[in-house]
Design a protein around this nucleic acid. Sequence first.
DNA 1: CCGGATCCTAATGGATACTG
DNA 2: CAGTATCCATTAGGATCCGG
Lengths: 102, 102
Amino acid sequence: MDYSRMCPKYEHAAELLGKKWTGLIVRVLMGGPKRFKDMKEQIPDMSDKMLTDRMKELESSGLVKRTVYPEMPVRIEYELTEKGRDLEDVILSIQNWGEKWM
Amino acid sequence: MDYSRMCPKYEHAAELLGKKWTGLIVRVLMGGPKRFKDMKEQIPDMSDKMLTDRMKELESSGLVKRTVYPEMPVRIEYELTEKGRDLEDVILSIQNWGEKWM
DNA sequence: CCGGATCCTAATGGATACTG
DNA sequence: CAGTATCCATTAGGATCCGG
């Protein structure tokens, strides 16, 4: 049995979730669509670069949808896709474990 | 609302699980106590150093218990603690999500 | 058998300043 | 408002050799 080749999907998912800020960002988006500045307000310890980097990752992983509203000034909203919303169970189970043991 | 200070336990847990090999190691140990060489066999892509580093982390985090049997040659076994075994739900929920979406 | 020690590279995290 | 760009420090990951 070779676990390193057995569970690539698991590994990929875990590495995604384990990156710093990712879980917090997903949690914020669980509250509905948000703008860049909204997220900065709710996670003030995170730098602009980190937020930008993570949003790009989340978008390219299909967890988040980015919509540009061509107003003036331009408005951009981020919202979870179904794939992203489906993470809720995972996040709750990590949360429960963390509360119990950390 | 400041999420970055709200969820330190969640963050810590997620970063632990997100590190490479950690999930696989815990999965292997779910099958019962294992020796160093057993784990290398089941996760052959992982280097000795990675296994050593992860086992130390897991031990100092209280997920794994290390027992030395003073035989000749010395035998060392690693097994999950209750804290470690309690991760099963978390791992399964990541697994389910990964299978569905990745 | 079970690592430890060393060395190296790549990836990540972050501070700061700037822009359409 | 919603990012870029730059630079720097730290960490993670890994190859290889060594030792009780």
